[in-house]
Design a protein around this nucleic acid. Sequence first.
DNA 1: TCTGGGGTCCTAGGACCC
DNA 2: TCTGGGGTCCTAGGACCC
Length: 420
Amino acid sequence: MYALVDCNNFYASCERIFNPKMEGRPVVVLSNNDGCVIARSEEAKLLGIEMGAPAFLNEEKFSKNNVAIFSSNYALYGDLSDRVMKTLAGFVPRLEVYSIDEAFLDMHNMQHYDLEDLGCKIRTTVKKNIGIPVSIGIAPTKTLAKMANRYAKKNKVKCGVHWLKNKEAISTVLQCTAIGDVWGVGPQYAKMLQRNGFKTAYDLSKAPDDFVRSKMTVVGHRLLNELRGIPSIDWTFEPEDKKNICCARGFGKLHTTKKDVAEALANYTANVAEKMRKQKSCAKRLHVFVQTNAHRPDDPQYFRSITLSLPVATNNTGMLLKHAMYALDMIFRPGYNYQKCGAIVLDLIPETQLQFSMFDKAENGKSKKAFSVLDTINKGIGKDIVRVARQGFERKFKLRQAFLSPRYTTRIDELLTIKI
DNA sequence: TCTGGGGTCCTAGGACCC
DNA sequence: TCTGGGGTCCTAGGACCC
C-alpha cells in the first residue's frame, strides 16, 4: 500500500499560519514578478479565481472580495515543507518526498494498522505540529493513491483520508475520476482519449494494452497497470542528482540593451553554477535563450536559443560566464523588447568523473576553493553579496515582489513579533 | 525495377509533473 | 504597465560506424 500525503493549498496555507486573521478570508499567492495566481485558499477558489490566472486581470475581484495577496516566498515554503516531511517521516519506515507539498509513504508491512485511523492520526499531528492541513489517499499503487487523495479532497471525506481498501472502493473512485484528472494524463492525452471514447479513469483501465502502448508509449502502459492495481512506478527514496539545472526568469520590466540582458544572464548563470557546486556536479553543455514578451502582439517577437558544448565539463562560475556571454553575443539582436532570458546547464556529471583532454589544465584548485568560500558567504548572508564583476550591481532585472511576507522561520531579523 | 543490416550516439521535440 | 519557473522521460530521425 502507498499513501499520498498532499498539503492543501500549500503556499496559501503557509501564509495563513502566520496571519491568523486570514482564517476564513480568501488568500492567493502570486508567481514571480507577481504575475500569475499559483495558489488559492478554498475561499479564493470559490470566488472563481483560476489557477494560473494573470493577477492584473483579477484586480477587481481581489479588491471587491477583500482577497489577501502574497508574493511567493520560497524561503518560507521550503522551510515549512521540511518540517512537514520530518513529521511524516516519524510515522513510516520510508517515505519519498515527491514535491514541495507531497510525499508518498511506504505503507507495506503495516497490516497491523487500520490505515484509515493511521491516516487520521498523521493528519491531526501535522496540523497540530506545523499548522498545515493535509489530505491523504491510500491505495495499492501510486497512481491510485493520487486518485484517492483527490477524491478525499473533492468529497471532503472524513478526516481528509480516503483508503481504497478493496476492489469496490477502487472501482468507485475510478468511475468518478474524469480522464483528464488522472495523474499522467495531460491535456494532449486527454483530448486523444476522449476522441477515442474514454471518459473516465475506469474506461481507461479497461482499454486494450496495445492501444495504450502505441498511443501513449511505455509511460502510458505503466499508467494502465497502475490503474489496474499493479504497482509499476518505482520508489525514489533518495533524491537523485539533477541532470539539468535551469535558471530563467522574466525581468521586472522589458530590456532593450545587450548590457541589461547580459547582467541578468550573468546572475542566472552564477545561480546555476552555485546549484551545481552544491550537488558537486559539472556541466558538459550550456543552453542560453532570450525572448520577447509573447503577450504583447504589437511588439516584434523574437526567440532564440543556443546550446554550447563546453570544452571541459565545469561548475566554475567564471568559465560558465565566459561561455554564457559568448552565447549571448551569438543570439542577441538589437531592436527588440526583451522580457526574459535563461541559462540551463545540461548533461551534468559528478565532479569526480571529470575528464580532461590532453591540452586542458586541470581545474585550478585555487579557483575551486575561492568559489566554495563565495558560496559559504552568500549562504550565510542569505543573498548573493559576493559576486563576480559581470553580475553587476544595478540589478535592474530584479523581480517585482510587492506583497512579500517575512521569512518568519529562516531569518532571525524577520521573526514574528507579538505585542502584549 | 532492383539499392544491406545491424548497431550506437546525439538531438530536437513532445508529452508529462509540480 | 502587468501573463511563473524548474524539472523528467520517451521517441523518431539523422549521423556515423562496421
